[in-house]
Design a protein around this nucleic acid. Sequence first.
DNA 1: GGTAGACCTGGACGC
DNA 2: GCGTCCAGGTCTACC
Length: 292
Amino acid sequence: LNWTVPARAPFFLPAVVQSHGWAQLPPFRTDPTCTELGRIERLDSGTVVDLRVRDAGNGVHVQVDQPLSRSEQEEVTRKVSWMLQLDQDLSTFYGLTRDEPQLAKAESQARGRILRSPTLFEDVLKTILTTNTSWSGTIRMTEALVSSLGTPLPSPRDAGPRAFPTPQQLAACDEDFLRRVSKLGYRAPFVLELSRSVSSGALELEALSVADLPTAELRKRLLRIKGVGDYAVANLLMLLGRYDFVPIDSWALTKVSQEWHNGQQVSRADVDAAFERWGAWRGMAFWLWEWT
DNA sequence: GGTAGACCTGGACGC
DNA sequence: GCGTCCAGGTCTACC
């Protein structure tokens, strides 16, 4: 089954795939040229599909190697559109970048869309797995969760690649399993609490992703999640299209130090100050900045 | 509101 | 191969 989903111009799929590391984390996958994005996805019906997405110039070609009902196909279209931010309008930001050499190529390269997961649950969980660890650690923890808990693509002996675990699948685990088998370490209770509160309905996380709340209020609510601090919340706000905060991690401190402070140690306030003039777009300016 | 120390793992390093 | 140190954000307790 093949179909096309349109995108607002300018659009270039590899720019979205390379926007950050998410494409390297299962159940996403990509090729070295980032011209195709694949993903094992569990649909609301319980069907597990292997999605393949390729650039179509003005949108994307979507391919699924199995028949889908109309509602399943609509769900895939909706999810692909959300993950790739196909409707994203960055014209205001692009207008501001024309006089800034370090951002001048953003529009011509169609940069600015940030790859996200189909659910805020998955993005929050993966963001927690990026904190206080190396990128290889994030990959290892994500692979362990997906391979041990996700629903497999139908195949002999259920040995196929797996979808991202649902909140229910994670909530059914015990902390010791997450700690030892998935190697989440001290993050295990955070992941468990998040999964159980979403699974029980106590936390309506997906409603937050489309809530018409002021950014400050949205930030406050996301900060209530254990394991989500200043860096993680700024990262999540970026994924939700709110660019008011710069996700400041050790990498950001190093980059700002080298760019504007001759390698001298800088504070979080220095990073904020460096991008303050970009106002509501400061996170995006930081994200796309071409460091010298 | 600011800060010190604990949390957990893997990688680098010296022996 | 083993032990030690360090990097990576967030939480809690405390001031």
